[in-house]
Simulated scan of single mutants.
Amino acid sequence: MLTKRKTAGEALFDGFNILGMLAICFITLYPIWYVLVNSFNDGQDAMRGGIYWWPRAFSMDNYVEVFKNPGIMTAMGVTVAKTLVGTAAHVFFTAMVAYAFSQRELIGRNIYLLMGTFTLFFSGGLIPFYLLIRDLGMLDNFMVYIIPFLFSFFDLIIFMSFFREIPGALKEAAKIDGANDFSIFTRVIIPVSMPVIATISLFHGVWQWNDYFVGMIYINNMDLQPIQTFLFRVVAQSSSSQIVAAAGGGVDRTVTSQSIKLATMVVTTAPIVFAYPFLQKYFVKGLMIGSVKG
């Protein structure tokens, strides 16, 4: 089989594309590599600079100092719990509301959609929201990570778009078998909606994992603060003595505030970085083939 030979212009265009993509990959990945390399380098040695590709004085002292703080494991547990519980609750609640909104016979549907669209552009602001959280008794409460974020109108739009593509024959068949609306939603709609559920789960799960603002504003109890708030407080420290004092250890001359910041950043971001590539495969649309026989 003969292949068409590229012209000089096409080869030049492909070359520029390849170089451009390599440049983008380098710009994106090198900061991560820089943080990783310096986190494994002796803190005092790293202050001299000049470390770009490999640790000059390899050391694990930064990570030892980070894990001396018992609060980091507590914060990690809080983050895992709020990510799992918050994501599951958000996806189920938002999907349930979206399914109702996707039914054209819903009374007042257009008014509700207009109200929801309004919230995409305008909000009450931080102070009214804080007062609401306080009056609901959710300050220093684990549920502050869950209840206020059960619903997202933006995610509802994504769910609705998917639900509208589901063949009506599925719901009609379930109704003939005597299923009510909730049974149809849980036993028919949810199983065939795994692509969009996985996508929204990934979006909200990454947000839950990376969020530090909620823990910083609404949580004063250190045992309820997530790992990203812990990271924020570590980065906010102005000297290594403050950090080491918080860890309950003595001053280590090989450790600096900057080296501990870098090590903490690696510890807190590594889990979601490793999990993300395995979840990418769920960004697939149109897996409805075979759900209806006809």
Rank of each mutant, 00 (worst) to 15 (best):
K82M: 14
I158D: 02
A98W: 02
T117A: 13
F92R: 01
R104H: 12
I157V: 13
L131C: 07
A98C: 01
G125D: 06
L131P: 09
G125I: 08
F129T: 15
T117H: 05
L120M: 15
L113W: 07
A89C: 12
D140E: 08
Q103R: 13
L131T: 13
L156A: 15
F93I: 12
L84V: 12
T87D: 01
G86D: 03
N110E: 15
A100I: 08
V91H: 02
I127Y: 08
L113K: 01
F122L: 09
F154K: 02
F93Q: 01
S123F: 08
D140A: 07
G116E: 08
L113R: 00
F121A: 10
E105F: 09
L120A: 07
R134L: 15
L120Y: 08
Y145Q: 07
G137R: 02
G137N: 08
F129S: 12
F121K: 07
I157C: 00
E105K: 12
Y145V: 03
L156S: 15
M138R: 05
A89M: 10
T83Y: 05
F149T: 05
F93C: 11
I107C: 03
A95F: 03
V91A: 04
Y99I: 05
G125Y: 02
I133N: 12
L120C: 12
V144W: 01
A100C: 09
M143S: 15
I147H: 00
A81K: 11
G86K: 00
T83S: 12
F151G: 01
V80L: 13
I127H: 10
T87Q: 02
R104Q: 12
A89F: 10
D135K: 13
G108H: 00
T94I: 04
F142A: 05
A88T: 12
F142W: 07
G86L: 04
I146Y: 01
F121G: 06
A98K: 00
G125N: 04
R134A: 14
L114H: 11
G116C: 11
A81S: 08
T94E: 06
N141L: 06
R104K: 13
S102D: 04
I127V: 14
R109W: 06
F118Y: 11
Y130Q: 10
G86C: 04
F153H: 05
F149A: 11
F149Q: 06
F118C: 03
A98T: 06
L139T: 08
G124N: 08
A81I: 10
I157D: 03
D155L: 06
F122E: 10
V97A: 13
L136R: 02
Y99L: 04
D155M: 10
L136F: 14
R104C: 05
L131G: 08
K82H: 12
S102V: 03
M160L: 00
L106W: 01
A95D: 02
